[in-house]
């Protein structure tokens, strides 16, 4: 980072700030015109339910909810987490050599999942997806700041979703990754209020309660507040913008 260099290369720098009143968190970035009240509510039976050890259930896609209320809305995500740091760019999520795979082609979609996060440096000793596996055993990815920076490749949230990731929880997101996650409905991009990635370890058992915007680490016994996913939640739940638009009558059903 810039702070690491001793001599400032720019002696003539001045800066002034004028705050706008608008709050511009990513969760506010998608406001569709015809959104009704948030249909998501939590199931009390899943609150704080103890984990089933390492056999914790994973979900195959953000849209495939591990537990559902009577309206079919996902309420909780439960599984093992995989922890990464800051500025995890799209090349680390899915290296460019695999971009020849076309996400809209089902067999290539599966293949993208098998390469998810394989671009992480060797310092990550635990692989996200084991070699010869198509899916990851980690259904929740926990990251630091600026998750998904870099390229606009939609292959990035698709690879995570195809690997079985239901949710990413990061301190902040790069704009295009957040948008692509919502547009495809592949993963829930949750923002944490504090820096969770420093307090969780890969393999910890996690529950995320959507309605409560709460993350519980059963391994450490700690609970964290998440920022509300807001209007993006129903879009991801529906399976992306097209599915959402059909569901809400914005565009005719196919």
């Amino acid at each position: 980072m810039a702070a690491s260099i001793s001599a400032s290369p720019n002696p003539s720098f001045t800066y002034s700030q004028h705050k706008l009143s608008n709050s511009l968190s990513p969760t506010q970035s998608l406001k569709f015109p015809t959104i009704s009240s948030n249909p998501i509510k939590s199931l009390s039976s899943h609150h704080l339910q103890p984990p089933q050890g390492a056999t914790a259930r994973t979900v195959s896609r953000a849209t495939a909810a591990p537990s559902s209320s009577s309206t079919g809305s996902p309420t909780t995500f439960h599984g093992l987490c995989y922890v990464v740091g800051d500025n995890i760019d799209t090349d680390q999520i899915i290296p460019a050599e695999y971009l020849t795979l076309v996400p809209s082609n089902p067999s290539e979609y599966e293949k993208l999942g098998s390469y998810a996060l394989c671009g992480l440096p060797a310092t990550y000793s635990t692989r996200f997806v084991e070699s010869n596996e198509a899916k990851s055993k980690y259904s929740i990815v926990i990251g630091g700041a600026n998750f998904g920076c870099g390229s606009s490749r939609e292959h990035a949230p698709v690879a995570l979703g195809a690997a079985g990731t239901a949710a990413v929880v990061a301190e902040s997101y790069a704009r295009i990754f957040f948008r692509n996650s919502v547009a495809t409905g592949e993963v829930y991009p949750f923002e944490s209020e504090v820096r969770i990635c420093d307090e969780c370890r890969t393999g910890d058992v996690i529950t995320i309660e959507l309605g409560e915007s709460r993350l519980i680490n059963h391994t450490t016994g700690k609970e964290y507040k998440l920022k509300s996913i807001g209007d993006a939640g129903p879009v991801i739940e529906a399976g992306g913008i097209f599915a959402y638009a059909r569901k809400t009558g914005m565009i005719p059903s196919a």
Binding site: M1, A2, S4, I5, A7, P9, N10, P11, S12, F13, T14, Y15, S16, Q17, H18, K19, L20, N87
Partner: peptide
């Protein structure tokens, strides 16, 4: 939202070191 001012006449050639484009150095 913010304004930044630079006097370019005083700037020196820069690089971004591995592994981030903001890892600036002369």
């Amino acid at each position: 939202l913010s304004e930044y001012r630079f006097d370019i006449s005083k700037l020196e050639p820069l690089v971004a070191k591995p592994h981030s484009p903001d890892n600036r150095a002369l």
